[in-house]
């Protein structure tokens, strides 16, 4: 149990024993840090190593950690083994357009509720708070029925709508939190300088709420990119399925191409990792800022 008491050098610096204990403590902490990091990386590592094995090594018993023959061609062949280029396009389009829609709809609502008191404001926020907890898993039958009724099964548009909708409440909530935290006086100062309402919003408020915007964008994009159950249920043509649905197709009762499965899985993580490199500093804290202040 590592509770937190700040290791300050001064009070124990007198004795050599203390210095040793402190150094040991630092070393142990670093060791545990590496262990945690390893626990995280290990599954990816195993995925990468397996993706590089040739077919015959996959079922070998006992298994080996490293491939005996490094089959880098797997990452090339996988593009030919299935229409995953198409699936990737579907994933990208669905995630990007859903994010745009969610943001375009959430921004005005969040801004207005943060800046103005009006009748129904509390009810609206409560609605947003409650629907934030809705997940496709429990509602998939209703969604399916709606998609059938609107004739949107097996279309990208249907996927886009569902993903935009399920992430909208979170976007409204987090943007509302950020807009509320920005003093109105800043905008009013901009009015005095002759800026119009829209200009004040674009020049003053939006840049200040950038962490919130980034969080909303990333959250929605990743949510849509990772979505599985709705896509599984409402799409049926292989070229209209996102990566999440296409990936498991490499291992069925007819074919077992685990190496392709892992190669595609790794490819599917790439956009997420790229996004993270850009936004990590915004995201830490940003995620809870809307709900915990």
């Amino acid at each position: 149990m590592s509770g937190r008491s700040t290791p300050r050098p001064k009070d124990r610096a007198g004795s050599g024993d203390g210095a040793f204990a402190r150094r040991a403590k630092v070393a142990i902490l670093a060791g545990v840090g590496y262990l945690v990091a390893f626990v995280f990386i290990a599954p990816y590592l195993e995925m990468a190593l397996t993706a590089l094995k040739p077919d015959r090594e996959l079922t070998k018993s006992p298994t080996t950690l490293l491939p005996e023959h490094w089959d880098f061609a797997n990452f090339v062949n996988v593009w030919k083994a299935a229409p995953i280029w198409k699936n990737m396009q579907v994933s990208l389009i669905v995630a990007a357009v859903a994010t745009l829609i969610a943001l375009a709809v959430a921004l005005p609502a969040a801004y207005y509720t943060a800046r103005h008191r009006f009748r129904g404001r509390g009810a609206f926020l409560l609605l947003v708070l409650v629907t934030q907890m809705f997940a496709p898993t429990a509602l998939v039958i209703g969604i399916y029925r709606e998609m059938v009724a609107l004739d949107l099964t097996d279309t990208l548009f249907g996927l886009i709508l569902v993903n935009a909708a399920f992430n909208l409440p979170f976007c409204v909530w987090i943007l509302h939190g950020y807009f509320s935290s920005i003093p109105k006086a800043l905008e009013e100062a901009a009015y005095l300088d002759g800026a119009g309402k829209v200009k004040a919003l674009v020049r003053v408020t939006l840049p200040l709420s950038l962490p919130g915007l980034v969080t909303a964008v990333i959250y929605t994009f990743i949510g849509a990119w990772n979505e599985y159950v709705v896509a599984l249920t409402i799409t049926s043509s292989p070229d209209r399925q996102p990566l999440t649905v296409a990936v498991p197709g490499f291992v069925t009762s007819y074919q077992q191409h685990w190496q392709y499965l892992f190669a595609t899985s790794l490819i599917a993580i790439v956009p997420v990792v790229i996004l993270f490199v850009f936004i990590e500093r915004y995201l830490i804290g940003g995620l809870t800022a809307g709900s915990v202040k």
């Binding site: 005005p108 207005y112 609206f124 947003v128 629907t131 509602l139 209703g142 709606e146 909708a165 909208l168």
Partner: peptide, 16 residues
Amino acid sequence: LILPALVVIGVLLIWP
């Protein structure tokens, strides 16, 4: 300004 959000929530979340 909040109408679009209400429509989306109503049609795609509440309706199901």
